[in-house]
Amino acid sequence: MAAASTTAERTQAVKDYVFSHVSNSDHWALPFFDVHLPGWLTLHGLMLIVAALILIALFGLAFRRNDRVPRGLAGALEAIVKFVRDNISIANLGEEDGRRMAPLFCSLFFFVLTLNLMGIVPLFATATGNLGVTTALALVTLGVMIGGAIYKNGLIGFAKAFVPAGIPIPVLIILAPIEFMGMFIKTFALTIRLFANMLAGHIVIFVLLGLVVIFGGIALPSVVLAIGIDLLEVLIAPLQAYIFTLLSAMFIAQIHHPEH
């Protein structure tokens, strides 16, 4: 994009740069060398693995000693775990199921949170800005929704979740398929929400910075805006992880306890 001269060309160059930056790629551009990645891995795949390793290392280090009262890092992590267990899992699924399923939501929350936060850190890429990743994560939720409901309530109980009580049969014929579709729509919405949030934030930051490239010095104030958006991203990363986990818990609870 360096050699572009006219505004239109520069705009195209910025657009190309932004989209190539937020897209998955098969190389990892580090400051002095470029790491080529195999096709099955790709940059976002690498980020997934790095995130997993960071989490394992973090928890491994924090809880290597089994203190009666955790301090420092372990205390902070434990507070988050407690928050996820109490405010997401137990709040939605009830005391018994909430406690049993808390590990799943903790894993989801910390995984998504780490992936989101890695997007803000330079040199790393946003794996949650990859539709494949968010789809896979939302399908985990869908799997738990369907599998858990069948395990808990049986096939008939699972089917009953789509048939609300006290509704006449003609309405049911229309309503039941909508309810059934709703399950997939919820999952789809979950996918898109996380993906679009993470992607849009990065696109906005890069476009704001790109304005300087397109219009020159006159657009310098947009850098301040970009920094503002970047700080907003720091807030949005945990928020979206929370929303993703919370909605997962809500959807799972809805289908596991259809009477509510």
Partner: peptide, 17 residues
């Protein structure tokens, strides 16, 4: 409020996509 705002934002971003 934050949860609802995020949900609305999700719809907006859905359209943005």
């Amino acid at each position: 409020m934050i949860i609802t705002a995020a949900l609305i934002e999700g719809v907006a971003l859905f359209a943005a996509v």
